[in-house]
Design a protein around this nucleic acid. Structure first.
Lengths: 124, 124
DNA sequence: AAAATTACTTACTTCTACGTAACAAGCTGA
DNA sequence: TCAGCTTGTTACGTAGAAGTAAGTAATTTT
């Protein structure tokens, strides 16, 4: 990726597609949902809720909707009573997994040093 | 990365180091600042401000401080008048660059399909 | 007839990230 | 003497992100 390629990521005109796409993944839960679906495979709503643990029901639905809108997660409804809805990564969502794994591995590798830095740092 | 490895990323007890580290990078400006410093090399405050274009002065200082606290960016003050302060990536910050490039390339590749998905999607 | 199940929705409140604009320090050149 | 340069800080306000808790629908179980 060259210097020229990167120029376009600072959107002076407010129209940077890359930033627009990544902003959605930068919220509190999207990455985690993708990772969990990637690791566990297809999951129902309540199971997802239980695996993540500390997400509220509302934020789980909101996050899933946004991921579904972007075509990263598929939603399959089985018209039974009580209802059954299964969530899974789409191909596009799965293609994102390696990058998230890369980031997470980086974080796991460096977190000790980062914590040490934070403690030493005296903000003005 | 195995299933067991990922288990720890859902922090039921509120203590997930990976999430703690990545949360700082998920804000509006951190990734962009790292990318710009990675591409352009060492930069002074005002130059950084000008290259990014649409960041406020306050958010640039806040973002830089947080990156400095985490040891991702170095800050060098030259005691001159008017002052000169240079920012650059540390080794740790530079080690993050490939992952960001990976993400950005993924976004550039998929943004067209994602935009199409968003338009087709009818949220309830 | 009451309670449980599943997958949500809605209303309300709280929190925090971010933006704007003014001010500050300390020397320099007009 | 006074505006101007660079790198910030401070006070203040707001929009949107996120949390809480209750409600809903349709059916089976007790």
């Amino acid at each position: 990726m060259t210097k020229e390629d990167w120029k376009k990521y600072s959107d002076v005109d407010g129209e940077c597609a890359v930033r627009n796409v990544l902003d959605r993944l930068g919220d509190k839960w999207s990455m985690l949902v993708i990772i969990v679906l990637g690791v566990e495979g297809t999951l129902r709503f309540n199971k997802l809720h239980q695996v993540i643990g500390d997400i509220s029901q509302k934020m789980l639905t909101v996050t899933l909707k946004s991921l579904e809108a972007d075509g990263l997660v598929s939603r399959t409804v089985y018209p039974e009573i009580p209802p059954r809805v299964e969530y899974a990564l789409t191909e596009r969502g799965a293609s994102l997994l390696p990058h998230m794994e890369g980031l997470a591995e980086w974080a796991a590798t460096h977190m000790e040093g980062i914590y040490a830095s934070r403690e030493k740092y005296i903000g003005s």
